[in-house]
Write a protein that binds this DNA or RNA. Structure first.
Lengths: 163, 163
DNA sequence: TATTGTTATACTCTATAACTATA
DNA sequence: TATAGTTATAGAGTATAACAATA
């Protein structure tokens, strides 16, 4: 996928693109945070939401799994999970073969909170995006898929050199 | 630009797109945060960086101006600015006609820190983006411009209601 | 000893509430 | 009284360092 000589060839375009990403992505993120705070989607913050997303897709994940995926430290993750457990959204069990590894899963309330928050965030975004012409919507959709592939480490990327 | 009947027509595409944005944008953001923390770009956090960006583009902005643009509360903004002033990156003066409004500007060090952080963040992104084929880079660039227009209130948007 | 996770401590970010100073 | 900002207080997010439990 990545040719070695391509970096220099694409350098100028990549730098331009990076500048635009640096403008656009934080703006969207700001909007999302603002929405989540305003409507208090079941009281979830963005990191809490992202932790729920991960566990919803990876049942019985360990703390290290989530921490690595979200790119935050183990202690930070431990605390974040602690608040989710305290609120009855996540369940923390001892692993059966390796008792050091914890096994995380969503409770019924956790699954429900996740669905509600996800739907609300998506609806907020869709409301704005719906103002665009169809061609631009398609363009944004395609670009997001490209970015997701590029920046999510576990999605079909080898990951041996990644981190 | 936005016809009223368009929302329903574009609804399905917009919802799909919103789902993709909800995956892609947080991933890019996570990467950016991680980079900023790893390399400690002059010790700037993302919110601090964004405050510098705003003041770099809007000299003599007031606290309310930044707070509204970043979408955070006045007290939160006050503290954020306080740390930037304490670190010698930003300058907080009293407004000349209205002494309640403060007038914010970057110090030399602030401008330099901003430039360094911006260049580093951009380079980090460009490194990854450079792996993409040119066509996809162009696609991402275009999409980001669309999103920025859509989510930044003051960029070529009427702004009569915004501020 | 190495790995997994937690707790301790110390920041920053953020909000709401209460306050000060200016208009 | 209304507006611009600050300070007080509280809670979440985050990191590093120190620790406990398990392998």
């Amino acid at each position: 996928m990545q040719r070695l000589g391509q970096a220099s060839k694409n350098g100028a375009s990549a730098a331009l693109c990076a500048g635009e990403v640096l403008v656009g992505v934080p703006e969207v993120m700001r909007y999302l945070r603002h929405q989540m705070r305003r409507r208090r989607h079941r009281g979830l913050t963005v990191p809490q939401f992202r932790a729920l997303v991960f566990v919803a897709h990876h049942d019985n994940a360990s703390l290290s799994d989530i921490a690595e995926h979200l790119g935050i430290s183990l202690p930070a993750m431990s605390r974040l999970v602690g608040t989710l457990v305290r609120r009855g959204l996540m369940c923390r069990k001892e692993g059966r073969d390796d008792r050091r590894r914890i096994s995380l899963s969503l409770t019924g309330r956790g699954r429900s909170a996740f669905r509600v928050a996800h739907a609300a965030a998506r609806r907020s975004l869709a409301e704005r995006i719906g103002d665009l012409p169809l061609r631009e919507i398609a363009r944004v959709t395609a670009a997001m898929q490209v970015l997701a592939r590029l920046f999510v480490p576990n999605a079909s990327d080898g990951g041996s050199s990644g981190r």
